[in-house]
């Protein structure tokens, strides 16, 4: 287990190193930091002097080393537009994005498990056929289209729900702005969360259904039935437990994917999160902010994947054995 952990950590570090290298190469080629600092009115000689002082004429690797030394201390440069440290800007937007992902994940868990299990237990019922039919339709609708249609129906035609922004937010734990604790914030969360959940929901329903069907054919389920245990207990306790293994692996990867899709949802709903900020940074060619976003998102992906591997290793004995023998 320790070896397994160590190998995962080394791999994660390597990936982060590659990401930082790519990010730095991007920053090096994107925009001119001097122009951002001094504007157009400085003479060429002064520019050259400034370049030397800032070390912009040093070899690429030397500059990269300096960038890494700062990055490790949490300094990813200063945003050209916000005139604040890029990392602070991103961390300020992080709660909005995380709440969106959290809300969507909650919806997915609450809806996909009962739906998937129901479809597996009653394969012939019209309701499960409807769920499966809807799920293939759901896979085929791109998330931004779902979002637009939701806005069109619920905000424009019916006028029930707000179509953009976060609404009122409360401060919790000192610095975390949350929309979960008042009515206005919650109303603003509804449509974005549904849109974000709509990509993953069909996938999970189908996954849980197929794993559950497999579990229902196993010997231990037959034995439990013969023993006379209550059916709900067999389905939701014994069979579901074994269904969850693959769901966790896929789920972990999909949480990363959801961070990517927040860019789409946030841009439709003008949600003031990281993804929306990233698109704005791209339009303004705000190189330090783009780079900081790359590194933060890269770190989220690496951490989530490593955690998923670890959890999987903890609950699945066969992985634990493989780690030992290797």
């Amino acid at each position: 287990m320790l070896l397994f952990l160590a190998r995962r950590l080394i791999q994660g570090l390597l990936v982060m190193l590659v990401i930082s290298f790519i990010s730095f190469a991007i920053q090096d080629n994107l925009g001119d930091p001097l122009r951002e600092m001094v504007g157009q009115s400085v003479s060429e000689a002064e520019r050259q002097q400034l370049r030397d002082e800032l070390g912009l004429n040093d070899p690429f690797l030397v500059q990269y080393g300096r960038f890494m030394a700062k990055a490790v201390q949490g300094d990813l440069g200063t945003s050209y537009f916000f005139k604040e440290p890029a990392l602070d800007v991103i961390l300020g937007k992080l709660p909005a994005t995380l709440e969106l992902v959290f809300g969507a994940t909650l919806l997915i868990i609450v809806l996909s498990i009962p739906a998937g299990v129901y479809c597996a237990i009653h394969p012939q019922s019209w309701f499960s056929k409807a769920i499966l039919g809807w799920s293939i339709l759901g896979i085929s609708i791109p998330v931004f289209l779902t979002a637009i249609l939701l806005i069109y129906v619920f905000s424009i035609e019916l006028g029930w729900l707000p179509s953009y922004g976060r609404g009122e937010v409360d401060l919790i734990f000192g610095s975390w702005e949350s929309g979960f604790f008042n009515k206005d914030g919650l109303l603003h969360l509804v449509l974005p969360c549904i849109s974000l959940a709509s990509i993953m929901l069909p996938l999970f329903i189908r996954l849980i259904r197929s794993e559950m069907v497999e579990a229902l054919h196993t010997e231990y389920v037959k034995f439990a039935k013969a023993k006379g245990l209550k059916l709900t207990r067999i389905y939701y306790l014994h069979a579901l437990k074994n269904t969850m293994l693959p769901v966790i692996t896929v789920g972990g990867v999909q949480i990363g994917t959801m961070v990517a899709y927040t860019i789409l949802t946030e841009s439709v709903f003008q949600w003031p999160g990281m993804g929306f900020m990233f698109l704005e940074a791209v339009n303004r060619v705000d190189a330090p902010l783009i780079v900081a976003y790359l590194i933060v998102v890269g770190a989220i992906f690496v951490i989530v994947n490593t955690l998923v591997d670890l959890i999987y290793g903890l609950i699945n004995p066969t992985v634990r054995l493989a780690g030992k023998s290797a």
Binding site: G256, T257, V259, I263, L264, V282, F301
Partner: peptide
């Protein structure tokens, strides 16, 4: 593990 969407958005944006 890096979703296609993420990679594509970042590469194209850059």
């Amino acid at each position: 593990s890096f979703s296609t969407m993420m990679v594509a958005i970042i590469v194209l944006a850059v």
